[in-house]
Design a protein around this nucleic acid. Structure first.
Lengths: 257, 257
DNA sequence: CGAATAGTGTCTCTAAGACAATATCGT
DNA sequence: ACGATATTGTCTTAGAGACACTATTCG
């Protein structure tokens, strides 16, 4: 059976155009935006960069970039994280695709947003260095219902308002924080923030949870819940005793897989 | 301050290109794919259409279409649902954006997938009518861990295999079913399947849950849980007694907002 | 010993699930 | 009365949370 000729007869006009001349259609630009989170000094922090071009000149923005033709969106996100922060291995998750017609005033841009968990130590710059226009902002606030409670605080203590951010990035950040908080107990996200997934204490892990949820957790209950959930499925394993710490030494755990 | 000239001096080469000549870059095509679900005869069903063009000629596919420049992805999804199934009001949710380089053999295509809940009665065609190449397939199977357990059954009883579907649509469907099952208890998704959100019985609502989860639920426990969760927050309200039914008449409820 | 941190035990309360019992219709 | 469906009740168990207590190190 000659599918090709059969095919040609059956084509509707619309399908014909789609198949044989897709370039006739205008196409939106496609970018990848990355919300790079880390936990530092007990706080959840987010990497923002200061724009030095129009539009939104001088505003803070989530790092991003155009999608290349030979890479998937996730590969593009990984590439941009390497370029922007010098981080190689990273726990990535797709957040949402933003496609409002007017979200970029220049042209039609669709953004596929990802969020990532990175240990503070792996970030390729130190606090206050300011070599690039990048800075870590601590992330606090309730975010339950649309209470507009997100608080972003810079290293110098300055608090950002929605108007300090470019594009629709303020609302993207809110979406990301909510998503992270919702998924932290039943995904492996938290482990991405650990300095060493091969040897950590449950107290260190709890600090990560507390930073993300922005509230204190009960020490005993956290320990019990985590051990039940993860040790049962073999996701964490006991290693050996910590050494030379202040106070009672803690058991070290290893994250498996 | 003349931001424009200031801007021009500060532009990096890459940013210059991005801002002033975006058309120099190749761009992927962007499509919207829609997983249109309904509940019929106690089963969860999904609308698929048979392709009559290459590639994947004769295979079943999720309906979709190219994104127009003047509409958001969600608006495009709403438009395609209207075109494909004649449905106006629909509960839509973004599923995921698929961007593998090779997912469409013709060219680079990025697909933003949405899933939708529609009552069977609102679908603009009847069972077996076959006016178009569209058909409802019942959706069953476990899907816990990658057990590859999805089962799609056509109206004539034929069971589809992954090879019967176009592109990466088999795996998109699995993702959608998992997502729906995960979100059904804490979103309003289930109500979208009701024939009349303004007057339904808890038994009808339970049938929707059972169809989506593909398992029987305890009658008493379902009732208690739903009433606690939704009546407390004022999401459902009692209306009046059902009339003329077989067996004891049920209380009718109204979904608010 | 005291400060500091790690880890255990206990009590309460809520909610899920299994399952039995009762209520109200049409015929 | 009987079949059919709706609705309520009871018992058990798992888990979340609050909170008190014990353990082990260093200096």
């Amino acid at each position: 059976m000659d599918l090709t000729s059969m095919n040609a007869e059956k084509l509707s006009e619309k399908e014909y155009l789609e198949q044989y001349d897709p370039s006739k259609y205008d196409r939106p630009s496609v970018t990848v935006d990355i919300l790079l989170f880390t936990v530092d000094k007990g706080e959840l922090k987010l990497l923002l960069i200061r724009r030095d071009t129009m539009p939104f000149y001088g505003k803070w923005a989530i790092p991003g970039g155009f999608l290349h033709m030979e890479e998937s969106a996730e590969e593009a996100a990984v590439r941009r994280i390497r370029e922007e922060a010098g981080v190689e291995d990273v726990r990535l998750e797709q957040l949402y695709t933003f496609s409002d017609v007017k979200r970029d005033p220049r042209m039609r841009v669709i953004s596929i947003a990802y969020y990532a968990a990175v240990p503070r130590g792996k970030l390729g710059f130190a606090a206050g260095t300011e070599t690039s226009a990048a800075e870590l902002f601590s992330v606090h606030g309730e975010l339950s219902e649309d209470g507009e409670e997100l608080r972003l605080t810079g290293e110098n203590g300055a608090v950002l308002t929605p108007g300090d951010l470019a594009f629709d990035h303020w609302s993207i950040i809110k979406t990301a924080v909510q998503r992270m908080r919702g998924k932290i107990d039943y995904t492996d996200l938290a482990f991405g923030f650990l300095a060493d997934q091969g040897a950590f204490t449950l107290s260190e892990l709890r600090l990560v949870f507390e930073a993300i949820l922005d509230r204190a957790l009960d020490v005993g209950n956290f320990r019990r819940t985590i051990k039940r959930e993860y040790e049962k499925q073999g996701r964490i394993e006991e290693l050996e005793m910590e050494k030379g710490a202040v106070g009672r030494p803690a058991m070290l755990y290893r994250f498996v897989q």
